[in-house]
Amino acid sequence: MKKPSPYLTVAGAIPFVICAFLMTAGVAAIPVLGETQYVLSIYGLVIASFMAGAHWGNHLGLADDNTWAFKLPVFSNVIALGLWLGFLTLSTVGFIWLLILGFVSLLVIDYGLHQAHIIGHEYFKVRKYVTLIVVFALMVAVTNL
Rank of each mutant, 00 (worst) to 15 (best):
P4H: 11
V10G: 05
V10N: 00
V10I: 14
A13C: 12
A13K: 07
F16D: 13
F16W: 10
A20C: 10
L22W: 15
M23E: 09
T24M: 08
A25S: 11
A25K: 06
G26S: 06
A28P: 01
I30L: 08
P31F: 11
V32F: 13
V32D: 07
L33K: 03
L33M: 05
Y38C: 08
L40P: 10
S41P: 13
S41I: 07
S41T: 11
G44W: 05
L45H: 03
V46G: 04
V46T: 05
V46N: 11
I47E: 03
F50A: 15
M51V: 08
M51C: 08
G53M: 04
H55G: 04
W56P: 05
G57H: 10
H59V: 06
D64F: 13
D64Y: 04
D65G: 06
D65F: 08
N66T: 03
T67Q: 12
A69G: 04
F70T: 14
K71S: 13
L72S: 09
V74N: 13
V74C: 14
F75T: 00
A80K: 09
A80S: 04
A80C: 05
L81W: 12
L83H: 05
G86D: 04
T89H: 14
L90M: 15
S91C: 08
V93N: 14
G94C: 14
F95T: 10
W97N: 14
L98V: 10
L99Q: 12
I100F: 14
G102H: 12
V104W: 12
V104R: 08
S105K: 09
L107S: 06
V108D: 02
Y111G: 03
G112Y: 01
G112F: 03
L113K: 01
Q115I: 07
Q115T: 10
Q115S: 01
Q115P: 02
H117M: 08
G120N: 06
G120W: 00
H121R: 12
R127T: 05
R127G: 02
Y129Q: 13
Y129K: 12
V130K: 07
I133L: 01
I133M: 00
I133D: 00
V134P: 00
M139N: 10
V140F: 03
A141Y: 15
A141F: 10
T143K: 13
